[in-house]
Design a protein around this nucleic acid. Structure first.
Length: 570
RNA sequence: UGAGGAUUGGUGUAAUGGUAACACACCUGACUCUGACUCAGGCGUUCUAGGUUCGAAUCCUAGAUCCUCAGCCA
């Protein structure tokens, strides 16, 4: 991924693939803008999620496609909700995603002084006034969707008085909520956002970057267009709910007489079995429903990263879902597909057993052991091979054995011969049970002629199993994740219900007695591999030397398991 | 019944007056030292009603349905 070049002349996108790129292309052609400059403006009040990835990828991708610039700008105008922790996490996530902003990291709070001066300008023009109404009174004066509002009694204050009052607001003379600065537009406007919107509120709260420098803070509508204007943004891309705010965005900039970017709105991402709201995600974190913002079940970028998602997979996903103005819900299976597609090409394969069942090869010499060659990645010949130890006692997956095999079960069962991946054909001769009647060991014989996994006499075997050498394998923990919510739309609840009613009680299954290849003994957190026949796994930061912990990012597709679920397929 | 938007298979998108297509999902089958991958096939679509036109997803008219907005949040 290349850096966005600095100040290169805008180049028309070769083929507009969505309505925003089409609009940008037209703006370039018409001369409305001579360059392209976008921004991603998160509020640092939570972690970024996959929906933000879509937005980032639209903002960054359009800048890149048109040879323009891309800014990361924190919209930190509300100190009561914002924290430095979020600033750091968000910047890291955006970098990780691959949206490079170089040194173009900005903070709205750095513009507070300029914003303040512009506010005085508006007052001088008679287009803003200090209002003494309380928030309830302002609300009552606003009118309703179908009826006009009423003017504030303060609406016709003199410029001098407004200036004086506004300066004293800044100086800290008034308590929180006692006054606001409002734009003087039209209390009867059919768009409620235009009914004298509040520009500044009094908040005697310390700001995470500005400290105690301010006790008045700008509102979004007032601040956002100014931020865009200051940075020379050409296309201010945002989600649909801001469509109603565009007239106000334009109004402030026009009445100030300053540079005006073009705001374009697109539909935010929704995904099945997922909630995509920082507020609700925060609720899950605060109530301990998940381990934190980076819990691998969370749709946050931090969670997805910990789980084993790659930036490449997320980018491809963002590209495939497209951009539109229609509300939509993407099937989470598309995200999973993108991950499998990426990891299938790149992830090295290993053998690992989640639930070990001991296998004793009765005709294999007691103290002997040997090394077999295993292919690291059948999709990538350059990945080479590795050695895997083999000896008399092995572990296989418990569910790969059935004493009485159901129909279509091809794996190991008494009398049946199967292949151990890269090793030998083995035949089950005997089953050992404990007092409770549970199978605790399977005794097999192997065919020395099948070393490497091929039979010289050409006989076929229905199934190939993964395995590890009991003597050599390293113990590991696996965390098997399933969707966080059982319902396709977790927000679809009866009156009085909660999205948390749909929480999947089996969204996390911890398996503590796994066995994996010795090569995996000391993996670094973040290492991603495929455990053959099981899925893609990512080493967790909780890993300890000699005892790795793996998060299952996604299973392999499993036709057998699917057939089990749908009994119709005989 | 204020304003602003939206509507194409199960899902997400494409087609910009000229054969409605792609991906995911789902279902078959082939292949296979991963019941993976890959390959082949199948399923199924223009919100409704009128109109313009040789021809409409696309243009016009009317309607339906859905989304957003009444924070001193963003």
């Amino acid at each position: 991924m290349k850096d966005v070049p600095d100040r290169e002349p805008a180049t028309p996108s070769p083929e507009p693939t969505d309505f925003i790129r089409e609009a940008v292309r037209q703006d370039l052609a018409s001369g409305r803008f001579a360059r392209v400059h976008t921004r991603f403006p998160p509020e640092p009040n939570g972690y970024l999620h996959i929906g933000h990835a879509k937005a980032v990828w639209i903002d960054y991708g359009i800048a890149r496609d048109f040879g323009g610039l891309f800014n990361l700008r924190f919209d930190d105008t509300n100190p009561v909700k914002e924290e430095q922790e979020y600033v750091d996490a968000i910047a890291e996530d955006v970098r990780w995603l691959g949206a490079e902003f170089g040194d173009r990291l900005f903070f709205a709070s750095d513009y507070f002084e300029q914003m303040y001066r512009w506010a005085e300008d508006l007052i001088r023009k008679g287009k803003a006034y200090v209002c003494d109404l309380s928030s309830v009174e302002v609300s009552a004066h606003r009118g309703t969707l179908t009826s006009p509002g009423k003017d504030s009694p303060c609406r016709n204050r003199s410029v001098e008085e407004n200036l004086d009052l506004f300066r004293r607001m800044r100086a800290g003379e008034f308590p929180d909520g006692s006054r606001t600065l409002r734009a003087r537009i039209d209390m009867a406007h059919p768009n409620l956002n235009m009914r004298d919107p509040v520009m500044y509120r009094i908040l005697h709260t310390e700001h995470h970057r500005q400290g105690k420098a301010w006790c008045i803070y700008p509102m979004y509508d007032w601040a956002h267009g100014l931020e865009d204007s200051i940075e020379g943004i050409t296309h201010s891309l945002c989600s649909l709910e801001y469509e109603n705010h565009r007239p106000l965005y334009d109004w402030f900039l026009e009445n100030l007489g300053i540079y005006r970017p073009r705001q374009i709105e697109f539909a935010r991402l929704n995904m099945t079995h997922t909630v995509m709201s920082k507020r609700l995600l925060l609720e899950l974190v605060n109530e301990g429903r998940v381990r934190g913002w980076d819990d691998p079940r969370m749709p946050t970028l931090a969670g997805l990263r910990r789980r084993g998602y790659t930036p490449e997979a997320i980018r491809v996903f963002c590209k495939r879902i497209g951009i539109d103005k229609a509300d939509s819900t993407v099937d989470v299976q598309l995200l999973e597909h993108c991950l499998r597609e990426d990891l299938n090409k790149r992830a090295p394969r290993f053998l690992g057993v989640l639930c070990p069942l001991k296998v004793v090869i009765t005709n294999y010499p007691e103290g002997e052991e040997e090394e077999l060659d295993a292919v690291n990645n059948p999709e990538d010949s350059a990945a080479g091979t590795r050695k895997v130890p083999f000896c008399r006692e092995l572990y296989i997956e418990a569910e790969d054995f059935a004493e009485t095999p159901p129909p279509k079960f091809f794996r190991l069962s008494p009398g049946r011969e199967v292949r151990l991946r890269y090793a030998y054909y083995i035949t089950c001769r005997e089953v050992v049970k404990d007092a409770a009647g549970r199978v605790v060991e399977v005794r097999c014989t192997y065919d020395p002629a099948t070393r490497g996994g091929d039979s010289p006499d050409g006989r076929k075997v229905k199934s190939t199993l993964h395995w590890v050498s009991a003597r050599h394998a390293v113990p590991a923990e696996a965390r098997l994740y399933d969707r966080l919510f059982t319902a396709s739309d977790p927000l679809d609840v009866p009156p009085g219900g909660s999205f948390k009613d749909h929480l999947n009680p089996e969204s996390l299954r911890v398996v503590t007695d796994c066995r994996v290849e010795p090569a995996l003994k000391d993996v670094r957190p973040g290492f991603i591999c495929q455990f053959e026949r099981l899925g893609y796994f990512c080493a967790d930061p909780d890993s300890a030397p000699g005892r790795p912990v793996f998060n299952r990012a996604v299973t392999l597709k499993d036709a057998y398991a699917r057939a089990q679920r749908t009994p119709s397929a005989v």
